[in-house]
Amino acid sequence: MGRTVTIVDYGIGNLFSVARAIETAGGEPVFASRFAEVRDAERLLLPGVGAFEPCANTLRDKGLADAVKAFVETERPFLGICVGMQLLFDYSLEYGKHEGLGLVPGHVGAIPSADEAGNRKVPHIGWSRLLRPDTRETWDDTVLAGLPADASAYFVHSYNCFPQDDDWRLAEADYQGFPVCAAIRRNNITAFQCHPEKSGKVGLQIVGNFLDQ
């Protein structure tokens, strides 16, 4: 398989950094905003920033939600980032209840807000260590293979994914006692709440591993 990564371009967010991270890791980024380009991609990356609802609506309005679903059925490698991870779930509770793509059973809900002492600020902004969940024996054969034991990644989010099955949790992060769902993996889907494209060398290694899938 080649090293092409098709980035779903639906007008949301800064795609430049993602594209540069793919290039730097040795891949070839391609932007796609048409159904067939997305469905027929060799490897697909779904980005997303900001609020859930505008991302979900825009993806649907452009006819790309079905394209993403059609791609996932092909069993080729898929990577979601940030809201691009959250969109995979059944629904999100951000500013009301909004439907997602339903590719991963579960939902997206708020990070429990700060306690009275203000010990947990929301949004969660900053670097947190990626932890292997108890449900997973190894990261071998995943995009996290070969990372240093204390590898950290950059997070910026107020909402968190709650997959129905804990076996899909690929990585967690401890945000002052709250177990952030940092990454999931289900069949050919891998997705990150954190931003590999903003996580320095650790992030570039994750992107490089995705290229090897």
Partner: peptide, 8 residues
């Protein structure tokens, strides 16, 4: 900067 700096 964004070309080869991979932090926010």
């Amino acid at each position: 900067a964004a070309r080869d700096i991979f932090v926010p």
